[in-house]
Simulated scan of single mutants.
Amino acid sequence: MKSVIVAATLGALAVSAHPAPEAEARGPSLSDSTILNFALTLEHLEDAFYKLGLSRFNQRSFDNAGLPAGAREQFVQISQHESEHVAFLTGLLGSKATKPCTYKFPINDPKSFSSLSQVFENVGVGAYTGATKSLSHQYITGSASILGTEARQAALVAAYVNGVEGWGNAFNVIRPFLFLIAIVTNHLQLQQIPLTLSQAYSLAAPFIVKCPSSNPKLPVTVFPTLTIPSSANPGDTVPVTFKSNVGRGKQLFAVFLFGLGQEVVPIRNGRVIIPKNLAGQVYALISTSSSGVTDRTTVAGPALLQFEFDLEGRYIPNS
Rank of each mutant, 00 (worst) to 15 (best):
T129C: 09
Q138A: 11
A71L: 06
L226H: 03
S95G: 00
P302M: 11
K250G: 01
F177W: 15
L67V: 08
G53E: 06
Q80I: 07
R26A: 03
F62M: 02
P194C: 09
I35Q: 02
T98G: 10
A97F: 11
Q281F: 13
I146C: 02
F171S: 06
A200H: 03
T185P: 00
F307A: 06
V282C: 06
F223S: 05
E312M: 04
W167M: 09
G142I: 09
S115N: 08
K96A: 15
T132G: 03
A300Q: 13
P106F: 03
N215Y: 06
A205I: 02
P194W: 09
Q191R: 05
S95P: 00
L10R: 00
L67W: 08
A205H: 08
Q59T: 14
E150L: 13
S55Y: 00
E43P: 08
G142T: 07
T149M: 13
H18E: 09
S83C: 05
T132F: 00
G247E: 06
S198T: 05
A204Y: 10
Y50S: 08
A200F: 01
Y50T: 07
N215G: 04
V220M: 04
T241G: 02
W167G: 00
A182K: 07
A8F: 07
F105P: 04
S114V: 15
A25K: 14
N277Q: 13
G313M: 06
R26P: 00
V173K: 01
E312D: 08
E150T: 12
T288Q: 14
L40A: 08
Y160L: 06
R72G: 00
S143V: 14
D310S: 07
V255M: 08
R26S: 06
G124R: 11
H81R: 02
F309G: 01
V246P: 01
Y50A: 07
Q281K: 12
D32P: 04
A48F: 03
V15R: 03
V161W: 08
G163N: 11
A154C: 11
P302W: 07
T132L: 12
